[in-house]
Amino acid sequence: MHELSIAYSIVESAEEAARNAGVTKVKAVNLRLGKLSGVVKDALLFSFDIAAQETLLEGAKLNIEELNVIAYCPTCNENVELPSVQIFRCPVCNTPTPTLIQGKELELTSLEIDDENEQEVTNATATHS
């Protein structure tokens, strides 16, 4: 279970990006997760809430877009989506497909910021500090 350390990395990256953009409250974090990333979605969702505590991301929602595995089929000469991560064969012609095109992604794509709350939160932070 390394999802907690992954969650801390996500929070760290997202917080840095938010700070650089002058944002004080993040509403949601959007992530792309390949099915061969080695990260379990549910464990990550669980860990994220813990990692986000007492940060700009506290209470933010983690949206995970799961990406299927795409491999290159040398016979069809095109990229094909594999229906299973256990069978690296072209679903059309059954040729083995060792070349992976997509499926290992673990990428923070964007943050959703609620500008309505921005002012309010900024004030609260100012009072707090």
């Binding site: 992954i6 990395s9 996500i10 990256s13 997202a14 990006a17 938010a18 953009a21 944002v23 509403k27 949601a28 992530l31 673990l106 990428e107 923070l108 794509t109 964007s110 943050l111 959703e112 910021i113 609620d114 500008d115 309505e116």
Partner: peptide
């Protein structure tokens, strides 16, 4: 209701490693 603003990042989480 106002649409949330989107801040694009595209950052590989394991970039440091």
């Amino acid at each position: 209701m106002q649409q949330p603003r989107i801040l694009e990042i595209r950052h590989n989480i394991l970039k440091k490693n």
